[in-house]
Simulated assay, not measured.
Amino acid sequence: MRQSTGIERDTELVLAARNGDPWAREQLVTAHLPLVHTTVAVAMNGRHGAEHVEHVVRETMLRALDGLPALTDPRVFRPWLVAIAVDGIRRHRHQQPAGYAHADGTPGGRWPGHGPAQEITEAARWLDPDDGELLALWWLECAGELTRHETAAALRWPAEEAPARFEAVRARLDAGRVVAAALAGNPACPFLGREAADWDGRPSAPWRDHLAHHTLGCGHCAPRWHALVPAEVLLSAASPVRAAGADEAARGRAAASAAAPTAHGFAPDAYAAADAAPYRAPEYAAPSATAPLGGSAHEHAADLTESFVLAGQAGHGRPHPPRSAPASAA
């Protein structure tokens, strides 16, 4: 969980940015870009190319900067920003057909797939399309980046509903972990090969359920269920935000020479070099006709989840500790 000094710094920056301070706006973007990028990249499950991830990230920052004047409590800026990202992910999912960007099913977006995170990101490709944002926020919670009330607020849930919903995602994620490991196993299970004979190589929820059903009753594959490390252990072992932050810093250094100054005096990392209109919320009215996200930045209510966050302030605490035993087979 973030320390109170981080909340205080965000509050100061939001207040300054609302008063037109370009340096404060730059700092808000720089400090929170890894969080937004992580949320979007994980939630989209690699189902679209990197350009789709970048578009949703850019739209999120535009909407947030544009909505700052209406954010009545700057202390909730971080979960409010995540809520805007979740809203953008859902809008994109409804407007774009789901399907992997590459014919071989490899992820199209950038993923925080290093060390323990690699197993999660591989398994996440087998989740249901609308599980993405749940996994992203659960990961952020396990890594200490968000509290339970903040994740619930971003998803617009009552906090007491979160455990059951995350448990359902865990079951599907564990099934994906077992299926991914079984398919990559050496030696391979010959019976699994027969079950997957008609599979096109693209991870999907129906094939996850079909292949997971085989693994439950197969003497060769079933032991993989008992060998699973609890998902929370893997999720808490590495912060995807810190990994993304290091990646953004490297991208920013590489793009610094190509980034031109903007009207507001800042060009956030590689996004500025890739787009002629980076994060300039005051000038932004609506995306182009071809943009995946339709509508104006003003369509997003500034108090999207603020009331939920404020209602849970007294209950904020550290994320739940990892479970000590592997999850049961779904």
Rank of each mutant, 00 (worst) to 15 (best):
residue 37 H to A: 15
residue 261 P to G: 02
residue 177 R to K: 03
residue 36 V to S: 02
residue 20 G to V: 14
residue 128 D to Q: 15
residue 98 A to I: 12
residue 13 L to Y: 07
residue 54 E to I: 09
residue 123 A to R: 11
residue 299 E to Y: 02
residue 226 H to Q: 13
residue 81 L to T: 09
residue 114 H to M: 15
residue 285 A to F: 12
residue 254 A to Q: 10
residue 26 E to N: 15
residue 102 H to T: 14
residue 89 I to R: 05
residue 275 D to A: 13
residue 27 Q to N: 06
residue 44 M to H: 02
residue 284 Y to E: 14
residue 136 A to Q: 05
residue 265 G to F: 07
residue 87 D to K: 00
residue 131 D to L: 05
residue 89 I to F: 01
residue 180 A to W: 03
residue 243 A to S: 14
residue 55 H to Y: 13
residue 183 L to F: 11
residue 145 E to T: 04
residue 141 E to V: 01
residue 246 A to K: 12
residue 102 H to P: 05
residue 29 V to W: 03
residue 125 R to N: 08
residue 120 I to G: 01
residue 162 A to V: 15
residue 213 H to S: 15
residue 193 G to W: 12
residue 211 L to K: 09
residue 233 V to S: 03
residue 109 G to L: 05
residue 16 A to G: 10
residue 296 S to K: 11
residue 221 C to N: 02
residue 111 W to A: 14
residue 240 P to Y: 02
residue 145 E to A: 05
residue 161 E to A: 15
residue 285 A to R: 15
residue 221 C to T: 05
residue 260 A to R: 15
residue 122 E to C: 06
residue 48 H to F: 12
residue 151 T to W: 01
residue 148 R to M: 04
residue 316 H to K: 09
residue 253 R to Q: 13
residue 220 H to Q: 06
residue 298 H to S: 14
residue 97 P to T: 10
residue 172 R to I: 07
residue 93 R to C: 01
residue 214 H to L: 13
residue 276 A to S: 14
residue 25 R to Y: 01
residue 34 P to C: 05
residue 65 L to C: 05
residue 57 V to N: 05
residue 141 E to I: 01
residue 5 T to Q: 11
residue 171 A to W: 06
residue 237 A to Q: 06
residue 9 R to E: 14
residue 117 A to C: 02
residue 312 G to L: 08
residue 162 A to K: 08
residue 223 P to M: 09
residue 281 A to Y: 00
residue 268 P to I: 09
residue 150 E to F: 01
residue 35 L to I: 03
residue 254 A to H: 04
residue 186 N to D: 15
residue 25 R to W: 08
residue 299 E to L: 11
